[in-house]
Design a protein around this nucleic acid. Structure first.
Lengths: 215, 215
DNA sequence: CGACCATCTGGACTATTTGTCCAAAATAGA
DNA sequence: TCTATTTTGGACAAATAGTCCAGATGGTCG
């Protein structure tokens, strides 16, 4: 930890330390508590770190992505995935000083993996051995694409070649909901099926995924 | 502990009592252990009874339904439903004397309800509130992983930490069949769930996928 | 105990896939 | 035809997937 000195005396750290420590202690060892400086976008302090981040490091993970100042100060819990496969539940909160000005951003990352494993063990314990008949899994993501597009074409009566922009957005919204793009190589296949270029595909997707950027 | 005059001296009861008592103690208070007489179809003894049956009562629940003497002596676990809605997992075993003759039938009935409730609590803990838009398609790949691994662990009795190389290959073969690795980011999750490194994971996978390289 | 074998690990590295960007071409409309 | 919008191909940048290997680990056997 290099740049410790110049932030050691940041008044915000001692201010929020008790809360953070309490949370970290309560949820240890499965939760990491991070205090960010929203101005410099760096870590002010961290308790029980799960990644290799330390104080002064830039805020990774996009924890501060879209903390729009409209309305709520608490975000999540939403899901995050670590490189090593752990699944986190994260909540963030904007901490304000006495004047109501944003002072720091608090993030709590809880590793859900052990809980989920425990749940799996418990629910499987002494359960009948007969396996569930396997939900077909994602064999059919390909068919699914055909299906969604085909059905839309049939409903609107427009052939794939001349669907409107809106049509395509609708279809993509649907495929996105169905998590089709969580399957490797699905994107180019969809582009092909829609007879549009990969660029366009990603453009439309970005539009969908953007919270409310447009308008 | 059940004991009635006219059967007090049945030599089978003292013979099997230690095992039954041990099982009952281990799983108490959620399991009932019953010792049946396959000849008279009556209860020889019962520990930790969950229903109102007692010693000498006729064997209810059809626990002895189809214990065909061909091959295995252990049956289940299969599911049973109690009148009050509790879900039981049951195993039965034919106990044989020194001559190999059927001596008694052991049934263990485990009440799964509290476990299932606990599992529900655990899996809900800190789960993202906004997620799960559509269970339509399979986002279940994660659960699937838990399921496959969990079931293997249960069957072999080995905890995840000390599965053998073969165990892991078996599990991976299964996951591969289920196309789990066609899902983005599945690999590190599997590695994490198996408690092995990403390297090892890919090594084992390569071994599986190699046509006939090994030998 | 110590050598030995098999396997696993962390990390560096390469390959493939995903996602972004932009200037130019295509298309739709008035 | 002229203009505004959208699409396209292709160049990049970023993220994931997969490979490789030297060293760590763990179990076995004399």
């Amino acid at each position: 930890m290099g740049a410790v000195e110049n932030e050691r005396h940041d008044p915000r750290v001692p201010l929020w330390t008790p809360v953070c420590q309490a949370i970290a202690a309560l949820l240890s060892p499965y939760a990491e508590v991070v205090l960010h400086d929203p101005g410099t976008d760096r870590v002010l302090a961290i308790w029980n770190p799960m990644t290799s981040r330390g104080q002064g490091d830039p805020s990774l993970l996009g924890e501060l992505d879209d903390l729009d100042p409209s309305g709520k100060d608490v975000y999540g819990p939403y899901e995050k995935l670590l490189a090593d496969g752990r699944r986190l539940s994260s909540v963030s909160a904007i901490l304000r000083d006495a004047q109501g000005e944003p002072s720091a951003v608090l993030c709590v990352n809880l590793d859900r993996t052990p809980l989920e494993q425990a749940a799996a063990v418990l629910s499987a314990f002494a359960a009948p051995t007969v396996q569930r008949p396997q939900p077909l899994f994602e064999q059919d993501w390909f068919e699914r694409i055909q299906q969604v597009i085909g059905s839309h074409v049939r409903v609107t009566g427009r052939p794939v070649e001349r669907l409107s922009r809106e049509d395509r957005l609708t279809i993509l919204r649907r495929l996105e909901q169905d998590r089709v793009f969580a399957v490797r190589r699905a994107a180019p296949v969809v582009a092909g099926a829609l007879k549009i270029s990969r660029s366009t595909l990603y453009g439309l997707l970005a539009e969908l995924r953007a919270p409310r950027a447009k308008e």
